[in-house]
Simulated scan of single mutants.
Amino acid sequence: MFSIEHEFDATVITLVDEGPAPLQEDVVINSFAECVTLEQFDPRTEQIQKITLSPEQVRDLAAALDLPEGVYQIHERPSQGA
């Protein structure tokens, strides 16, 4: 299950683990214009763990989810005028 909320400066997506036990803590994704952050509570340390990705890293991650094993580099094509 997940929720999506649009706030003033970010889109916030919360992923809730509904799978079989053991369940993982919620993952909160904050999408800003300049970066995307992923946050998850770590019960071992009782702290929020945070990862920051650039827009390019998010693009690469999305592409990687649908590709077979290997090494890839995405090249942007210049847009062609109408």
Rank of each mutant, 00 (worst) to 15 (best):
E39Q: 10
R59V: 13
V58Q: 03
Q49N: 09
L15S: 02
F8I: 11
D66C: 09
L53H: 01
R77M: 15
H75N: 11
P55K: 04
K50R: 12
S54F: 06
P55D: 08
V36D: 02
Q80D: 10
Y72R: 06
L53R: 01
V58E: 05
F32G: 01
E25W: 00
Q40I: 01
S79I: 11
T45G: 05
E69D: 07
E69C: 00
F41I: 02
A21P: 05
L23G: 07
V58K: 01
I74Y: 11
V12I: 14
A63F: 13
R59L: 15
F8Y: 09
P55H: 07
S54V: 10
P22N: 02
A21Q: 09
E39T: 04
L61N: 12
R44N: 10
D42E: 05
Q49M: 14
P22C: 05
T45E: 10
E56T: 11
E5A: 14
F32E: 04
G19S: 13
T14D: 08
E56S: 12
E18M: 07
L67H: 05
Q73L: 14
E69F: 02
D9R: 05
I51M: 06
K50A: 05
E25Y: 00
S3E: 14
E46K: 08
G81M: 13
E25H: 01
L65F: 10
S54H: 07
E69Q: 05
T52H: 07
E76Y: 12
Q57D: 11
E46P: 00
L67Q: 07
Q57P: 02
L61I: 15
T11I: 07
L67R: 12
K50G: 03
L15Y: 04
E34T: 10
H75Y: 15
A21D: 13
D17N: 12
P20T: 10
A33W: 04
P43E: 02
E7G: 10
V58R: 02
T11A: 07
A63T: 11
H6T: 15
F8Q: 13
H75Q: 13
L15D: 00
I74H: 14
G70M: 02
Q80A: 10
E46N: 06
D42Y: 02
V27F: 00
L23T: 11
T11M: 09
A82W: 15
G81Q: 09
